[in-house]
Nucleic acid binder design. Structure first.
Lengths: 267, 267
DNA sequence: CTAATTTGCGTACGGCGTACCCAAATGTAG
DNA sequence: CTACATTTGGGTACGCCGTACGCAAATTAG
């Protein structure tokens, strides 16, 4: 990362690329590439070989052009990454279909859609580490949620708070999963290798008496799949939202949401 | 990142570094450095100049040695990053003090402690992108939470689920904050610049009619500080946990937790 | 036609992680 | 004490990276 040339100007260019159509100048030769083709090729390369192997030279190579040709279309690598992000981040069909089904179904659809997106392109979370340039697609996602929260008696700040909280949970959770899951493929260390490597020290740690509560857990404690854990966390969070929404309407809060608790104790 | 040399072996070395005391060999000259000093210097450099400027050459320079000397103590940069992480991730005093105050206080303390840690060292989240090598300190944090959840009638899987969910929320939220907050300093683009650059396109977007719900929000909708937003999200999540815990005991769930009626919000 | 302008891109620079190798330092064995 | 085994410090070098610079070829305006 050798990023010097006036970061403010860099930001301005990113915004223009995201929102502006940018008319062709009339004087020179026709461009042989398009911004879309470059972004597409970069996404394909990142999906195939991981973000670590994504370089300007490689993207250029995929397109059969010289490395520096890309700089006629994109100011730098950071801007290309921002474009890749906004290209993929548009809300899926499940979300638009759930838009009028009540807040719980909607938020659940949004969370799952986002979860799936990040799993499909695990490098997305690593890309999104520079200051985000808000593009049209990311705004569209927020719009759907805010629209779905109307009429629940929330303040405007609370509505934004729900958006931030939900997104925080999803990205944080998926980050943990990718940490274990997808990193396995990148590094070539399988899950079995990972745990068998850790096994001796973990056994010694548990037997040391320094972690009594963890040592007391049954072996099945860690058996839940990632998807099950995601559902668990999402249900808890939506339950928490429900408590607030109910309080805003003066209605007593219900019991836990999708949870099939055998000893259900409700209000 | 040129990481090739047998990733499984790399993992094994990381584990040994984290857990093993590694006795000195008796034959050669005494080492002039220690692993601790290297990790410390690396953390200081990352705090000062950001993770982007952290290179092996720089860390070596801080310590007044040649770049390649570091490789006598650490197999590679990835392992150094893992060590930096585990060094910092130990639970703070607030957490150990809250350990016997009931689950809500404890989880709140854990979340806030972790939140503060990540804000103090914003590069931590970017470091933690390779497969995590579980160290003694990260286990200690889990231990405290699991111990605090005992006696609530949760299954073992649910206890782990709470840990994962809480950590997911905290890391996801703090990631969003760092995105806006700390990236500002790194890039040198101030918050005012950022928003003023975006302003024209956002105004145009709102006037386009494509985002009616967002356009209807008042200007104050985005006024909440990050800390207020964090409190909002954390309260919702803990409320959600409370619903489950109450159901597990057959006790009717309470209203919203710390929430002070009308002055709650999101950023 | 000529002039203006834009595109593709070869070359080059400074920085990175780290493989390789060797001299210096330190211990042990005799 | 000497000879040797072993380990440390680190210089050099390689192959990557992002990208600044500048120029020939292509295209259009006048």
């Amino acid at each position: 990362m050798t990023t010097d040339p006036t970061p403010a100007e860099q930001l301005r260019r990113s915004i223009d690329l995201l929102w502006g159509p940018s008319e062709r100048p009339a004087r020179g030769p026709k461009p042989s590439l398009t911004l879309d083709r470059i972004v597409e090729a970069a996404i394909a390369a990142a999906d195939r070989d991981g973000i670590g192997a994504l370089s300007m030279r490689r993207v250029a190579g995929e397109l059969g052009v010289g490395a520096m040709s890309l700089y006629r279309y994109v100011p730098g690598k950071a801007e290309l990454l921002a474009l890749m992000l906004d290209r993929l981040i548009l809300p899926g069909e499940d979300v638009t279909q759930a838009a009028d089904k009540g807040w719980r179904e909607l938020l659940e659809a949004v969370a799952r859609d986002s979860y799936r997106l990040y799993l499909r392109h695990p490098w997305l979370l690593r890309v999104n580490w520079t200051r985000p340039v808000m593009g049209p697609n990311s705004l569209a996602g927020v719009e759907i949620v805010i629209a779905g929260l109307a009429g629940l008696g929330l303040t405007d700040q609370e509505q934004i708070g729900v958006v931030i909280t939900l997104d925080g949970f999803v990205t944080g959770f998926v980050r943990q999963r990718i940490l274990y899951d997808a990193a396995a493929e990148e590094t070539g260390v399988s899950d079995e290798e990972f745990w068998s490597q850790h096994h001796p020290v973990l056994v010694r740690a548990m037997e040391s008496g320094n972690y009594p509560a963890m040592a007391a857990l049954s072996a099945e404690a860690y058996d839940a799949s990632w998807d099950e854990s995601f559902d668990f966390g999402l249900d808890r969070l939506l339950d928490g939202f429900a408590v607030l929404f109910a309080a805003r309407r003066g209605i007593p809060p219900p019991g836990p949401g999708e949870t099939r608790a055998e000893d259900q104790g409700g209000a």
